[in-house]
Amino acid sequence: MNLPVLIIAFNRPDLFSKLLAKVLSMNPTRIYISIDGPRENKDNERMRVEEVISIAKQYSHSNQFLFKINEKNMGCGEGVSSAISWFFQNEEKGIILEDDCYPNESFFKYCEVLLTKYENDDRIGMISGDNFFLSQYSIQDSYYFSTYFHIWGWASWRRAWDGYQLRSSSKVEIEETINNNFLNQEERNFWLDNITNAFFGLVDTWDYQWVYLNFRKRRYSIMPKVNLISNIGFGELATHTKEKNSKLSSMDIVELNFPLLHPQKIKTSILTDYFSRRLMFRLPFWERIFYYLFRLFYLMITKVGLIKR
């Protein structure tokens, strides 16, 4: 595979070891490993972090590996964003995987093809490995364009990451950007609250800031027709995904067929974006009814063979 990969790890040696083995099997050009330091108030965390470091250091002799190991805990916000910035300081494009995201093998080729195809297209911000249709909808093309950005296994370019900020105090700019991108007031409120909280450090995260940068640049993400990434890290040791019984936990991953069937136009669809929107906030009653009826109609005409799934 002619691409570099960044692995972002912390305190889960079992997940890190499994992901590293998968990445090694794909033989990327370089493997960047960023490991955050332990938190002082967490029992046994230093021991688990040191085990992750020990696994990584088995490859310290290889020129294929580069390491960023934090002595102190930087947290989800600074820890992850500084790792991605480090990666893109050294690489023009590549794949980013956190240690709880386990990819299907076809994810790597999918990223390789699309990173090349859209490398100079400023309309595209990133390539995601996530699909949240949950078997309720399917498309004929190999991937689709979306207004939304899911980061459980993704790829991007230095040109897209350029301009990323972890902190910002410009509430006026944030509000203007969100109002220009979304019409629904409930959705506006969702993004305003979460993005503002992230920028002001009220929530320790990096991803809302990345989403905001793409909103501000009016960019799309690319998502596959089938799910290529399984988040296997739900549970007590997770920072955010603690609900073990979540329907998003350890989702099935499916092989994507090649050659890819590319969409004819770069545009989004309200039908595919629906599945992202419903993950993030409660949709208005009329919208839930509309999509419920649409899915019933879609399944009916699929069953009688009027369209192919």
Rank of each mutant, 00 (worst) to 15 (best):
N2Y: 03
N2A: 06
N2C: 02
N2R: 07
L3H: 01
P4V: 06
N11H: 12
N11E: 08
M26K: 14
N27K: 14
I31D: 00
I31G: 03
S34E: 05
D36V: 01
G37W: 14
R39H: 07
E40H: 12
E40A: 09
N44A: 14
R46L: 10
R46K: 14
S54I: 07
S54T: 15
Q58L: 10
Q58P: 09
Y59G: 01
Q64N: 03
F67M: 15
E71I: 15
C76Y: 13
C76M: 15
C76T: 12
G77E: 09
V80M: 14
I84M: 12
S85M: 14
W86C: 13
F88E: 11
F88A: 13
Q89H: 12
E91N: 10
K93Y: 04
K93L: 11
L97V: 09
Y102R: 10
E112W: 02
V113I: 13
L114F: 03
T116W: 06
D122N: 12
G125D: 02
I127K: 00
I127Y: 00
N131H: 03
F132K: 02
F133W: 01
L134G: 06
Y137I: 13
Y137M: 06
I139E: 04
I139R: 08
D141A: 08
S142N: 04
Y143R: 08
Y144N: 08
Y144L: 08
F145Q: 07
F145P: 05
F145M: 05
Y148T: 01
H150M: 09
H150A: 09
W154A: 01
R159S: 06
G163Y: 01
L166W: 09
R167W: 06
S169V: 10
I174R: 11
E175Q: 14
I178D: 01
I178E: 01
N179W: 15
N180Q: 15
F182S: 06
N184A: 13
R188Y: 00
I195D: 00
T196N: 08
N197M: 13
A198P: 10
F199W: 06
F200P: 03
L202H: 14
D204S: 01
Y212T: 10
L213Y: 03
F215V: 10
F215Q: 13
R216C: 08
R216G: 06
R216D: 06
K217E: 09
S221W: 00
I222C: 03
M223V: 05
M223K: 10
P224C: 01
K225I: 01
K225F: 04
N227I: 07
L228E: 02
I229W: 02
I229A: 00
G235R: 09
G235M: 09
L237E: 13
H240G: 07
K242D: 00
M251F: 03
V254R: 11
E255D: 12
N257P: 09
N257K: 14
L261N: 13
Q264C: 05
I266A: 05
L271H: 07
L271F: 06
F275R: 04
R277N: 11
R278F: 00
L283N: 02
R288A: 14
I289R: 10
Y291S: 02
F294G: 02
F297H: 11
Y298C: 06
Y298S: 08
L299I: 05
L306V: 11
